[in-house]
Structure formats: structure tokens, C-alpha cells
Amino acid sequence: MLSSSVAHPSVNDLKRLIVERRITYPASLQQAMRLLLGNPGVIAFGTLRSVAQTCNVSETTIARLASHSGYSSFKEMQGAFRQHLVLIATPHDPPFEQQRPL
């Protein structure tokens, strides 16, 4: 379970914590988290029921996954994944019209 010193991690924070082995998951939660990290749209745009079905686990397991990952609820974890999709979809360079001429 995630330490209380890190509240509401971003998806990038979550990935880092997993890589650093500061958060580990039991087998069923690990399977679901792998799927969600590989396919963030599943949780970003899904319901608790559809996410559970896609991960082939119960709704309770997805709720436990959220809690185990440092979120207060499925909705909070879903919000983090939505924000992640916004961040990776947002261009980091200014639009062409705003660029200065050479």
C-alpha cells in the first residue's frame, strides 16, 4: 500500500513508485494496474463496472486498487488518469501562430 506521505499521485508518480518498488500489488491488483497503465483510456472514459469487466476482476477489486494506489476512490483515480491523458495529448510547443518568426 502507498505511504500516506504521497497523497493522490499522478499517473507518472504512480509509475515511478512502482518502478522504485515503493508500491507493490497483490497478483489480481497487479494484473488490473498493468492493463490500466497500458490502456489509460479504459479507466479515463469507463465506468467502475466497465473497467472491472475489461480487467476481468470485480468492481470491489478495482475499488481496492484505487485505495491501494493512494486514491480515496475510483473517481479520484479516474481523474488522475484523465489528467494524464490531457497532459500527454497537449502539445508542449506553442501553436504555430504564436511562434516567433525566424
Rank of each mutant, 00 (worst) to 15 (best):
R21Y: 09
R34D: 15
L87K: 13
Q99W: 00
S28L: 07
C55I: 01
Q31T: 08
Q99R: 14
T54F: 02
F81H: 02
Q98G: 03
R49E: 12
L85W: 00
A66L: 06
Q53N: 13
S3T: 14
G79Y: 06
Y71D: 03
A89S: 15
M1Q: 07
T61E: 08
P91A: 08
Q99A: 05
N56A: 12
G41N: 13
T61I: 12
H8Y: 14
L2I: 10
M77A: 04
S72K: 15
L2C: 06
S67Q: 15
P26K: 10
P40E: 03
R22V: 13
V51R: 02
P91M: 01
R22I: 14
Q98F: 11
V6P: 02
N12Y: 15
P9H: 09
V6H: 12
I43N: 00
T47N: 03
L102V: 11
H8D: 15
L36Q: 02
Q78C: 06
H8S: 15
D93R: 10
A27Y: 11
N39I: 03
H8Q: 13
M77Q: 10
V42E: 02
E20C: 08
E59K: 01
L102D: 05
S73R: 06
Q31E: 11
A66Y: 00
P9C: 08
A63I: 11
I18W: 05
L29Q: 04
L48G: 01
I62F: 01
V6Q: 07
G79H: 05
I88C: 08
L87R: 13
L14D: 02
S5G: 04
V51M: 03
Q83S: 09
I18S: 11
F96G: 02
S10C: 10
R64N: 07
V51Q: 02
S4H: 14
N39H: 13
G41S: 11
I43C: 03
N56C: 09
D13T: 12
P95N: 01
F74S: 01
S10K: 13
N39Y: 04
P95Y: 08
L102F: 05
P26R: 08
A89G: 15
H8C: 13
E59M: 06
Q31V: 05
S10R: 10
R100A: 11
A66R: 06
R16C: 06
T47L: 04
